[in-house]
Simulated assay, not measured.
Amino acid sequence: MDTTQLQAFVEIVEQGSMSAAAERLHLTQSAVSKRLQTLEQLLGNQLLDRIGRSVQLTDAGQRLLPIARRILADLDLARQAVQHSPSQVRGALNLATSHHLGLYRLPEVLSRFTRRYPAVDLNLEFMDSEEGCDAVESGRLELAVITLPRAPSSRLITQSVWDDPLALCAAPDHPLHQTGTLDIEQLARHPAILPDRRTFTHRLIADALARAGAEPQVRMSTNYLETIKMLVSIGLGWSALPRTMLDAGVTALPLDMGIRRTLGTAVHRGRTLSAPARAFLATLGADAQSRA
């Protein structure tokens, strides 16, 4: 067994097909298929089921995947340690973040990081915070900058970076702004536009209303906060958005539910972080301290 076989296996799983893995590895599809077949023969087990153009993990493949990812990650760490001195930070950094964080919190951090560490190959993947946690926990990505779950997996180490208070909000001409005083019962009678109920943010909002004995009437769901802001601004419903997003088109309602998110980082408890990951966390921490 060699690492090229493990790499082919992992890429097929992550890309979802032989052809996509071949393109990513700059190999022919037959070469990738041959590496997988050799690995399966060596292990005496079929690792993937080929169903049409897609692939699915067998039980043996599911057991091998986290081990293969760990071997490849450790090999990359060994390569960095041998080839470069500690003062030279280089190599790949696979980082997950949400669209909101990428737009509002990370631009200056990313700019400072790439200027200081130009030899780092930064692979930035945008995804929901829940997916980011899963990607780190599975070993596919090294680091996530996300909305932190209230009860993270025991396999993750999370670190708070930003406090993110949310405000109940609506368009300035929405009926909820015309009531003078506003209570939770009045709010619940109007349709809401919220993230999907599976998201950390939706749970925070729904739980805050539930504690007051109310349940939101969700008119639409989308996980892009910028889209929610647009829908709110044209009067389609109320929502709860980060206070940093409010402006003349979307204004806070006169009802404070004390809803707040914690934004921060997640890494795998059992993973030794690469030099690029450690450098990024240091850059992120320095930026947060400068804004405190």
Rank of each mutant, 00 (worst) to 15 (best):
L110N: 08
F200G: 01
A212S: 14
Q29S: 11
V250Q: 00
V218F: 04
K34C: 01
G44V: 08
L122G: 09
E226N: 12
Q15I: 04
C169W: 04
D164F: 01
N123T: 13
Q159W: 03
P86V: 14
L284C: 05
R243W: 03
I205K: 06
E226H: 10
L263Q: 09
A208K: 09
A288R: 13
P175R: 03
L273G: 08
S30A: 15
V13M: 00
E125I: 08
S87E: 11
A96R: 14
E14S: 09
L156Y: 13
E14T: 12
S233Q: 04
L36F: 10
D164Y: 00
T222G: 00
T201V: 09
L263V: 15
T147P: 02
S138E: 11
F280C: 04
V267H: 08
I193R: 01
L273S: 02
V145N: 06
S87Q: 14
Q41H: 12
S274L: 01
S19A: 15
R70G: 03
P242L: 03
L281K: 12
A20W: 07
R155Y: 08
S160T: 12
Q178M: 02
T199F: 02
A214E: 08
Q186S: 09
I228S: 02
C133M: 14
S233P: 14
S221E: 12
L253C: 01
S98V: 08
T227H: 07
V161Y: 09
R260F: 04
T158S: 12
G258D: 06
P66H: 06
E40Y: 12
V89D: 00
T265W: 05
T251K: 13
L103H: 15
I228G: 03
R63N: 13
S98D: 04
A275V: 04
V218A: 01
K34T: 13
T201R: 05
Q15Y: 12
E142R: 10
M18Y: 15
I157N: 09
G102N: 10
T265Y: 06
L263A: 01
P254Q: 03
L194N: 06
T179I: 01
R211F: 01
A151T: 15
L48M: 07
D2T: 10
T265H: 11
A286P: 11
A192L: 01
L284F: 11
V145W: 09
R50F: 08
T222R: 00
S87Y: 08
I193P: 07
E14N: 10
W238E: 00
M257H: 06
E23P: 02
A92I: 11
A167G: 00
S154K: 15
E215G: 04
R197K: 11
L6I: 11
P152F: 06
T158M: 02
E142K: 14
A135N: 08
L284S: 05
G237P: 03
I157L: 12
Q80P: 04
I234C: 11
V32S: 06
A73G: 09
L281S: 11
L253Q: 04
S154W: 10
P276R: 13
T244H: 12
M1A: 10
P254S: 07
P118W: 02
R278C: 12
L246N: 13
A151Y: 10
S87C: 05
M257G: 05
P254R: 11
D121M: 04
L101S: 03
E215Y: 06
T262Y: 01
D173T: 13
P254V: 01
V82K: 02
S33F: 12
T181P: 00
A167R: 15
D163Q: 15
I71N: 00
R105I: 01
H26P: 07
L143Q: 05
M257Y: 07
